[in-house]
Amino acid sequence: MTMLFVLGFLLVGVAIALLAMALRPVEEASSINKSLAVLRAMTDAPKELTKELDKPFADRVLSPLRSRALALGRRITGADATDRIRAKLDLAGNPAGWNVDRVMAGKVLGAGVGFVVGLLIGLLIADSLTYRLLFVVGGFLLGFFTPNLYLYQVAYDRTQRLQRELPDALDLMTISVESGLGFDAAVQQVATNTVGPLADEFGRMLREMQLGMGRSEALRSLGDRTNLDDIRSFVSAMVQADAFGIPVAQVLRVQSGEMRTKRRQRAEERAQQVPVKITIPLIFCILPALFVAIMGPAVIHMMDSFL
C-alpha cells in the first residue's frame, strides 16, 4: 500500500513537471509578443507623442538651463544693464551669435562654473579655509566677468583695426569726391572696395541713411558705436561741413592729411618706446647669458690656475 502511494505521488509530480514544461514556451512566447507589441506601439506612435523624446540634448537640457540663467541674470543686474551691454556689443562689432540675453545668461553660467572650478582647486591645493574661500570667490568673480572681458578684448582689437584703416579709407574717399562723386557715393566706395570693421561701419551708416535717418544723425551714430577719437573728429568735421555748407572735398583733404600725420606720430612714438621696453628682457635674459658666455671660460681657467 505504501509503495502504491509513493508511486502515485511520483506520477503526479512527473505530470506537473511535464505540464509546466509544456506551458513554459507559451509564457515566454507571450512575454516576447508583449515586448514586441510595446516596441511596435512606440515606433508607430504619433510624432506628437514622441516629439519630446526625439529632441536633442541641447533643446532638452541646455535651452531650459540657459533660460533660467537668463532670468536670474536679469534679476541680478541693474535696470540699465541692457543698455550697457548693448553699448559693449556695438563697440565689439556685434559678434555673430552674441546678444544681450546671451551675455546675461553667460555671466550667470560662468559664475556657476567658476564657483565649482574654484571650489575644486581650493580643495585640491589649499589647506586652510581662507585660501579655499579665496579660490572660490576668485573663480566666481572670474566666471561672472568673463563675458565682459571677452567683449572688452574684442572691442580693443577692433578699435586698433579701425585706427589703422581710417587714413587709407579717408584717402579713398578724398579721391572719390575729388573725381566727381558725392559723399554718399564715396562712402559706398569705401564700404564696397575695402574689407574690415571700418567698411562694415560705413555700410551700416549707409543702410541707416537709406532707412530715413539724416546724414548728421548717421554720422553721430557712427561715432558713438566706434568710441575712437579719430573717427569722432572726422564725424564732427563732416557734421559741421554739412551744417555750414563747406565743400566736402576740402574737409576730406584736411582730415586725410591729419590722419596720416597722426599715424606717423604714433609710429614714431612706438619706435621711441622700444629702448625702454627692451630694458627688462635685456637685463634679466640677454646680459646673464652674455656674461656666462664671455666670463665663463675665464672663470674656469682662473679656478684651474688657483686650485
Score class of each variant (00 low, 15 high):
residue 58 A to C: 00
residue 136 V to C: 12
residue 115 F to W: 08
residue 266 R to S: 07
residue 243 A to Y: 05
residue 45 A to R: 12
residue 48 E to G: 12
residue 165 E to T: 03
residue 31 S to T: 07
residue 261 T to I: 00
residue 167 P to N: 04
residue 126 A to T: 07
residue 264 R to N: 06
residue 288 P to A: 04
residue 119 L to N: 10
residue 253 R to H: 11
residue 111 A to Y: 02
residue 39 L to K: 10
residue 201 E to M: 02
residue 284 F to V: 08
residue 78 G to H: 15
residue 33 N to G: 14
residue 119 L to I: 01
residue 66 R to V: 07
residue 54 D to Y: 13
residue 165 E to I: 02
residue 24 R to G: 13
residue 101 D to L: 00
residue 71 A to Y: 03
residue 82 T to N: 14
residue 271 A to F: 15
residue 103 V to N: 07
residue 115 F to R: 00
residue 301 H to V: 08
residue 10 L to Y: 09
residue 138 G to N: 04
residue 171 D to Y: 06
residue 124 L to K: 01
residue 231 I to T: 06
residue 97 G to E: 09
residue 192 T to V: 09
residue 218 A to P: 05
residue 177 V to G: 09
residue 194 T to N: 14
residue 297 P to L: 06
residue 192 T to E: 15
residue 213 M to G: 08
residue 226 T to S: 05
residue 236 S to K: 02
residue 99 N to M: 01
residue 46 P to N: 10
residue 301 H to W: 10
residue 25 P to R: 03
residue 149 L to S: 10
residue 124 L to P: 14
residue 141 L to C: 07
residue 119 L to H: 08
residue 153 Q to A: 15
residue 234 F to V: 12
residue 191 A to W: 05
residue 110 G to Q: 01
residue 195 V to F: 08
residue 136 V to M: 11
residue 121 I to S: 05
residue 243 A to P: 02
residue 210 Q to C: 06
residue 291 F to Y: 15
residue 231 I to W: 03
residue 158 R to D: 06
residue 233 S to F: 14
residue 86 R to S: 11
residue 99 N to H: 11
residue 43 T to Q: 10
residue 140 F to W: 12
residue 207 R to E: 15
residue 145 F to L: 14
residue 193 N to I: 03
residue 289 A to H: 06
residue 306 F to P: 01
residue 236 S to T: 08
residue 117 V to M: 13
residue 103 V to M: 04
residue 186 A to K: 12
residue 172 L to F: 12
residue 119 L to K: 04
residue 191 A to P: 00
residue 220 R to Q: 14
residue 120 L to Y: 07
residue 52 E to Q: 11
residue 17 A to G: 04
residue 49 L to Y: 14
residue 84 R to I: 07
residue 79 A to L: 14
residue 158 R to P: 08
residue 12 V to K: 10
residue 120 L to V: 15
residue 69 A to C: 03
residue 225 R to M: 05
residue 112 G to I: 06
residue 10 L to T: 03
residue 131 Y to P: 00
residue 280 I to Y: 14
residue 238 M to G: 02
residue 283 I to A: 09
residue 228 L to Q: 13
residue 259 M to H: 06
residue 134 L to F: 12
residue 94 N to C: 04
residue 255 Q to A: 08
residue 200 D to H: 06
residue 231 I to S: 03
residue 74 R to S: 08
residue 165 E to P: 05
residue 187 V to D: 01
